[in-house]
Amino acid sequence: MSRRKSITGGLFIGLTAFSAILIIAVIIILLVVIIIGGKDTFSWEFLTAFPEDGMMKGGIFPAIFGTVLLVLIMSIAAVPFGTITAIYLTEYAHEKSILAQTIRFAVRTLATVPSIIFGLFGLGFFIKYVGSGMDDLFLGGQLKWGQPNILWASLTMALLTLPVVIVSVEEAIRTVPREMREASLALGATKWETIKRIVIPGSRSGIMTGTILAVSRGAGEVAPILFTGAAYYLATLPTSLSDQFMNLGYHIYIMATQSANVDQTLPIQFATTMVLLLLTFMLNLTAVIIRSRLRRKAK
């Protein structure tokens, strides 16, 4: 009896250890394969040059530029909006009010919506509805905003990353002790002054974490920008919000599926993947460090 128990116990330990090791192994294999495949192509030149020869040669600068611009505009939209929502939820809404619960439910749901749905929503809402509406209203029907561009892509991405911002900021706001708010109010500060001078500065690192996590998510997602602004190839960098743009993730997809010679572009694919991984990894690491500091502070 006890022997059988110890065998099952041993098996279970083995199984859990195996699963854990498997995950580490997958990551290592992934990294090794990507680094081996991309290391010869990866160079300063690769990061700073335009693609050449139908994207068979050259660098990926426009894709890096486009990705950075995308997440920048996305942050400008998502961070203030998400922060304000988080402030409303934690400071103004009653925890159990129908409105607050509805917002929370919406935020949770938003976080689970498949990213391609955001892409379709962006196409339908931003481009077909808002964009075309703007064209009809201001440009007499001339096509300018009613087509994919970096603004619509960024706003679509902002919707996708909004829950990340809201949750991070909410968490940070909750670490600001009640005693500090009371101290401020007892000195004759209004609620808004207390939020502005005590709560928001106290949640600064949370707002930063949320931003970085959102940026790292936005940098890696492709589906939301498929229909809303990403371009196959552009000879020039975007200069206006109504321009299309190139993007790292989309670039990988294009080269792997649409290239004239997929095998020949393999090293570029690997190197581009390396850049994208490196970028998101660094962003996530920064977020983790800031968040762990914040948690330590809360204790």
Binding site: M180, E182, L187
Partner: peptide, 15 residues
């Protein structure tokens, strides 16, 4: 509250 100040049980300085 400007007229009626308060000191709390747990000292609560701002950071």
């Amino acid at each position: 509250r400007k007229k009626v100040g308060m000191v709390f049980q747990k000292s609560n300085p701002f950071t």
